[in-house]
């Protein structure tokens, strides 16, 4: 367990080296936040829509802008790259569980982006626009929900990367993952704006667990326990699936020598 904590710390430090990139990313988040806020205010400004008034819509936009970096919504292809080059063999023969190790590192990365990419945009939104703060009781639930969002996001990214064990070039799958996640997670428009049937379909996928669920928990929309339950369910399913996939992949690498 200690070694995983070390890995998390290393992840934190690794990302803190890319300051320029972090600040550029923050500026990008804020820029999109401003654009999205304008559109959302135009939508809900006259009358609340589907439970969103202006302060709630502003909070929705800026939390989304912050969370997308925290959960690394656009994906990462580092593991896929290591699989393609064959370097992954080194990773597989280390005395760790690769999935757990990568998750530990991701927690470190997320920890760093919490300070640079999640909190600052939320503060910018709160300073510039009417902003809804959560009820006191919602804070700890939001923290849990954000962490579960990270687990689900990591679980999806791990599975997508792992396809590289079987596909020569997994970039197609990766780009599909990015598109599907950003479409169905509730980033563009709150999922409650969708027609009821579409909401049912969307909530049957893991994607809302990444952005919409933590925001719902924060805004105390709907029973918070259903959002958290949805997240927990997918966190477990994806983690187990990742474990099984990794097992098969290891067998493949060991038998076929990569």
């Amino acid at each position: 367990m200690r070694s995983y904590a070390q890995l998390a710390l290393a992840g934190f430090r690794r990302y803190s080296n890319y300051r320029q990139a972090m600040f550029a990313g923050l500026a990008a988040n804020v820029m999109f936040g401003l654009l999205r806020t304008a559109v959302m205010i135009a939508v809900v400004g006259a009358a609340p829509v589907a439970g969103y008034d202006v302060p709630a819509a502003v909070a929705y936009v800026w939390l989304g802008q912050g969370l997308l970096a925290f959960v690394q919504l656009w994906g990462d292809a580092r593991l896929a790259g290591r699989i393609r080059t064959g370097d992954v063999v080194v990773d597989l023969y280390r005395p760790w569980h690769l999935q757990a190790a990568l998750f530990a590192e991701d927690v470190g990365r997320a920890g760093f982006s919490l300070f640079v990419r999640l909190v600052p945009p939320v503060l910018v939104g709160a300073l510039l626009f009417p902003f809804q703060w959560p009820e006191v009781a919602a804070w700890p639930l939001f923290a849990v929900s954000a962490l579960l969002a990270l687990v689900v996001s990591f679980g999806l990214r791990f599975l997508v990367n792992a396809t590289a064990f079987w596909l020569l070039d997994s970039r197609g799958v990766e780009s599909f993952h990015v598109v599907a996640t950003s479409a169905f997670c509730g980033l563009g428009v709150p999922l409650s704006f969708f027609p009821d049937w579409a909401q049912d379909v969307l909530w049957a996928t893991p994607f809302p667990a990444i952005i919409q669920a933590p925001i719902d928990v924060y805004l105390s929309h709907d029973p918070q326990w259903t959002a958290l339950g949805h997240q927990l369910f997918w966190a477990v399913v994806l983690s187990v699936a990742g474990h099984l996939v990794l097992q098969r992949a290891v067998r493949k690498v060991v038998v076929q020598g990569g």
């Binding site: 970039r171 197609g172 799958v173 599909f176 950003s182 479409a183 704006f193």
Partner: peptide, 30 residues
């Protein structure tokens, strides 16, 4: 890289369509 190419091409079309869906969803409410 044919398969990857086809997937990415589709993904791009899909991405563009998603933004349209957002607009339509918004207009289902206002």
């Amino acid at each position: 890289y044919r398969v990857s190419f086809a997937l990415e091409c589709l993904g791009q079309a899909f991405a563009q369509a998603i933004e349209l869906v957002v607009i339509l969803v918004v207009f289902s409410r206002v």
